[in-house]
Design a protein around this nucleic acid. Sequence first.
DNA 1: GGGTGCTTTTCCTACTTTCG
DNA 2: CGAAAGTAGGAAAAGCACCC
Length: 583
Amino acid sequence: MAALREELEVYKLIDEMDAEETTNNAISPAFTQEPELGREAGTDEDENEYDGDTSNLNTIDENESDDDDILYQSSGVIPANSMAPPPRPPLYKPCQQKPQSKFHTPKPVQSQRLSSSGAAYPSEPDILAQFGQELGPRIAEYVSRQKSVDEGSIDPKWRTPALPAATAGKRPILKSIILQPDTERSPSPNGNSLWATEKKPRRRRHQADKKDEGPSGESETVVRDGTAISRERITRSRVSTEAAHQPKSPHIDAPQNPPQQDLVSEGAGQNPDDEPFGDNETGNSTSVEEPVANTSHNSGLVKRKNRRPGLSEMCVPRNKYTDAEDKQMLEWAKWVYNDTEYGFWGEPHWELLSKKNPRHSGTAFRQRYRKFYDRNGGRHPFLESGMADQDAPNDLSVKLGPPTDSGSTVRAPRSDQATEGPPFNQHTIFKTIMTFQDVSKPLGVQPIPPAKGSSVAGTPKLKDCPARKRFEPFKKIIHELYMVERYSLEKMMIIMELRYAFIEHRNQYKRQFKIWGFKKHGLASHVESETLLGLDQADGGESEDTMPGCSFGESAEMRHNDWLVTPLLSVVSGQSATVRVQL
DNA sequence: GGGTGCTTTTCCTACTTTCG
DNA sequence: CGAAAGTAGGAAAAGCACCC
């Protein structure tokens, strides 16, 4: 009992201290200490959970919260010395005293207990009788507080939602999900929780909504109306407006298969102004005769057919793949597969294909082919059925080809691709494409394995500006640091972060280096980067396509000024580096 | 440390379907 | 019939892992 009194005294002190704190800052302490509460609760839970003998828990409950344990010990229901480890640290009290915290979530088990039975808490006379006039009122007050924070008497719609994480991993699922709501929760006129997200009528697309809005959607509109042409794919593609208005074939009843549409509707009548294999660089004798795209048009925008509110009148036409392009791509894949040492799924030869047909990027070609590949049951379309079996091996050791010049080996196709796809007996590309349309399963049904390095857990959010735009103001600075001063990437990243608050992922730097041609390996690369930089300087040192809405704040302005590399560089590099760079 | 490949996510669009 | 909602596709961005 002496230990109990001592413990309660400590509680009192903490309570008083806490009361003072909560008047000024009620959220922060609760927020920071909440996890500790959960952790301790879980520990206790484990202790009780595997005790195996719940008879000692008497009538109240075997469910466990820290306060309950304290109360139980205090009430003598459970001998204090039976709890391991005794004595309990008095650290829990502040947590218990902060139920008003916004982050506090009542434990479902508590709610169940308290709400289901009015005798869950000892009555005040019982407490007084048990603890006497000295400690009894305090404990009664404590119990009263506990009752007050219990949401059992609160309308369900006003209750805070339970946090799954509060119970996951620490508490047995059964204990956390057994809510038995129908035992006590009174029906509400509208039982929906006020904390739940508002259910709005489904709108078409949130992006479209943003366009309807003012400032936030302004940049979008500007991009679409004004600078859309500057987008890389547009400038590169020079999309044919004629292609954008291709009449649909009336007998096409598979709207979800653009290749089929393209195949039928766009197969002829285009200007042969682009010979995919014109330079015969591939050495492929079966060159595609049909043109790939009409690149004579320089208008990147077409009038929107069904203009909706918030959308500009002009739009960028979809850069559809024509059947000729599909043919070209498949021929290209066949050639790469059979006659080259390129890594089949590697970027180089797809980029080369993109150079031949700039209407689509190399990545786009690869993705396009990937879909064909998937729809074909994980087989290359250009292979006969017999060969296809070799192409979709379960053995990962089987490779598609010899190592590439760069040393990278050709990867085997994904072994988990369906190997029982539809038979693929047609040899011609035309029939090949048509065969794809016969695949019963849509593309989405095809098994697509998660990437090894999938970032599903941390969903990447595209920033307001593409990386190219973000990097552009710092190009010269980065060049100076990375190429001239020869700082390592890591050090340069630190410098950029500390000095310019410019934080980018390491790979983003690498990617940008590749775009800019910044390579440290070899003098030629260095010269190349210098040349590239010089070209930009010829443009006035400004990026020609500064995206509206991309604000870099003061950091961006620094590119216009002389900047003196501060001793920070010396700190980072360990060398004397006071460099003045005229930008 | 630097470079590259592979994959997924996200954005934006066209097209189709549904509904008042 | 028109607008809204739904769906699929093209492309870029981004992260991770691997190799040199």
